[in-house]
Design a protein around this nucleic acid. Sequence first.
RNA 1: GGAGAGAUGGCAGAGCGGUCGAAUGCGGCGGUCUUGAAAACCGUUGAAGUGCAAGCUUCCGGGGGUUCGAAUCCCUCUCUCUCCGCCA
Length: 423
Amino acid sequence: MLQVNFIRQNRDLVIERLGVKHFKDIDLVDTIIVQDDLRKKIQSSNDELLSRRNQASKEIGALMGKGLKEEAEAKKGEVASLKNQIDINEQDLVRIEAELKSWLERIPNLPSIKVPLGKTPEDNAVVKEAGIKPVLPDGSVPHWELIRKYDLVDFETGVKITGSGFPLFKGKGAKLQRALIQYFLDFNIAAGYTEYLPPYMVNEATAYGTGQLPDKEGQMYYMPADNFYMIPTAEVPVTNIYRDEIVKEPDLPIKMTAHSPCFRREAGSFGKDVRGLNRVHQFDKVELVQLVHPDKSYAVLDEMVEHVEHLVQSLGLPYRILRLCGGDMSFASALTYDFEVYSAAQEKWLEVSSVSNFEAFQTNRMKIRFKDAEGKMQLVHSLNGSSLALPRIMAALLENNQSGKGIILPEVLHKYFGAASIE
RNA sequence: GGAGAGAUGGCAGAGCGGUCGAAUGCGGCGGUCUUGAAAACCGUUGAAGUGCAAGCUUCCGGGGGUUCGAAUCCCUCUCUCUCCGCCA
């Protein structure tokens, strides 16, 4: 959520930047400013009345103390008439503030100046492409066939137990998942991130904090009996660890990592894109979250991109890094880099990570602040990134490394997997 | 699931319906002392809105009520803790 004062002071810039995100309801910006003016006006006139009421009440107390009953009664009448106006003002204020908030919540974060113009994924800027696309041997097949061949995932039984999109990992498939999780976590911990293992269900306030609510509740699984949501990513519980907290400036940056399953309803996707592990309702992911000083967030974004890049490189997968265009970015992000790995048998790029700077958009909702050197309260900036999403990494590893002698695993996984290949 | 207790500032913990944004302790910050540190002592130390500022207003888990006036009384919701039951 943007701050009203920021919108007020930067009206033209806000409108221009929202255009980059193809935000339709531009009039909302001025509506918000007008509403905030109204809020201030009523607020200050009401404060005036409250002040008079408080004063009169004190006087009544004093009169009563002296036993001057009649004068006290006269004062009471005075207060009663103030009260009427106060009641009206307060009802107005409640309404006005609620409207203001709901409008503010509809304004997406402003895209950074580095965001490319454009509407669709085709407009994303490829900032880097690296690694060598493997030349696959004859008879190479996509990962869903390799999965069957080596008995790594039992999709049919997943359907039987739960439904489509809930893969049942099995044998070496399950072990490879575990190996990847371990490896990713260790890699992140070595870079100074603190490991967390968060709850997989969150309450409303938490889902609101990272921007899943309101509006995106349809993307999450919901447990009505307890009013909990299944997390779509560890970002949600982990970023909320510091909700409503004032952190100490020297404690920044706060670097956190967590593995969790992720649950996504992803309504309405069918067809070849959802074959195998490309798109599922439940998958595992290791996530990075940082809370940083506002002056540092773009340097930290670069650092996180580099960190994820090293991780992808260490797996020997061909990859590319995209800077998302205004139309393809998420609501809350100011700048996002996506990582895609090339899955050679499908001949497709698969998104395996998304690294974003949210600036103060999330922390304004969550009120995560610090007191700066001058003693002024400031919002910290939040960032997050995947490192990495598991099923698609597995798909690419299987497809790219298939050979007559089985799936040859990258070196870094050997000690975690306990073998150099899947045969 | 049953029974009880509680929710106050960074933490701990007081708080007759008015003088309470809130005692006290710890912690934090500044200072005195010291070669330096510790100890001791002195001072200071919540957030939000509004305003150039002085100031004014709001906030003692959330919501509602009583009252001229509520941290304090009433209702309600949520959460936490303790005991019992059940359970990985």
